[in-house]
Simulated assay, not measured.
Amino acid sequence: MNNVTPLRSKVGDTEKITINLGYVDLGQIDLMVQEGFYSNRTDFIRTAIRNQLATHADVVKQTMTRKTLELGLRHYSRQDLEAVQRAGEKLHIQVVGLATIGSDVSVELALATIEAIHVLGVLQASSELKSALAARIY
C-alpha cells in the first residue's frame, strides 16, 4: 500500500496559481527574460521558487518527519481502502504534493476507512467523496 511517487514537474502534473506582483518587480523579471537569463516569466518564477525550496530543504524535511507527511504523489485505490477496512484500521492521510482517491471508491468505504485528510498541495477525488469527507479534510 506504499505507492508514493516522487514529484516531477511535467506540464500535465502542475497546478496553476496566480500571483500579484508590483510593476517594478515585473519589469525586472521582464528585463531578465529579455537579457536571456530565463526563457519567460514562468521560468523565472519556477526557478525562484525552487531556489527558495532548496534554501529551506532541511526545515521541510524535519517538519515532514515530525508530522509524518508523505512527499510526492499518493494514490488510494479501492483495494487499498478495503485492506484498511479488513484490518479494522483508519487512515490519517497526510500528503505534501498530490493525493488521489480512486474513482471506484464508494462514499461508504471512504467514510469507514478515512479518519482525516491533510493535503498540502492538491486532493483529487470525486466531488461526492470530497463532500462526504468535508468534515475530515483540514
Rank of each mutant, 00 (worst) to 15 (best):
R86W: 03
N51Q: 13
V84Y: 01
A83S: 13
N51I: 01
L109Y: 02
V105P: 09
H75E: 14
L69I: 13
V95G: 05
R86L: 11
I49E: 00
H56G: 05
I49S: 07
D104N: 12
Q62F: 09
R50N: 11
Q52L: 09
L73N: 15
L71N: 08
T55M: 09
A57L: 08
Q94L: 08
R66L: 12
A87S: 14
H75W: 05
V84R: 08
L73T: 12
H92G: 02
A54D: 15
M64T: 01
T65N: 11
A57T: 09
S106K: 04
A83P: 02
S103N: 12
V60K: 03
L53P: 00
R50C: 06
A57G: 05
L109N: 02
L69S: 01
A110Y: 05
L81E: 07
R66P: 00
L109F: 04
T55V: 09
Q85F: 08
H92M: 05
E82K: 06
E70I: 10
V84P: 02
I101Y: 03
V84N: 02
S103T: 13
S77E: 02
E108Q: 12
K61C: 07
N51G: 06
T68H: 14
L71M: 13
I101C: 05
E82N: 01
A57N: 10
D58C: 05
Q52C: 05
Q85T: 00
L111M: 10
L81V: 11
G97W: 07
L81C: 03
E89G: 01
L73W: 13
M64A: 10
R74I: 07
H56E: 14
A99M: 14
V59C: 05
L71F: 14
V60F: 10
N51V: 03
R50L: 11
A48E: 09
G102T: 05
T65M: 12
G97R: 04
R86F: 04
T55W: 07
S106Q: 06
A110L: 09
K61G: 06
D58S: 14
K67I: 09
M64L: 13
A54P: 00
L98F: 09
I93D: 08
D80A: 06
L109Q: 01
H75S: 14
L91A: 10
D58K: 11
R66D: 11
E108W: 00
A57F: 01
D80P: 04
L69W: 12
G72E: 00
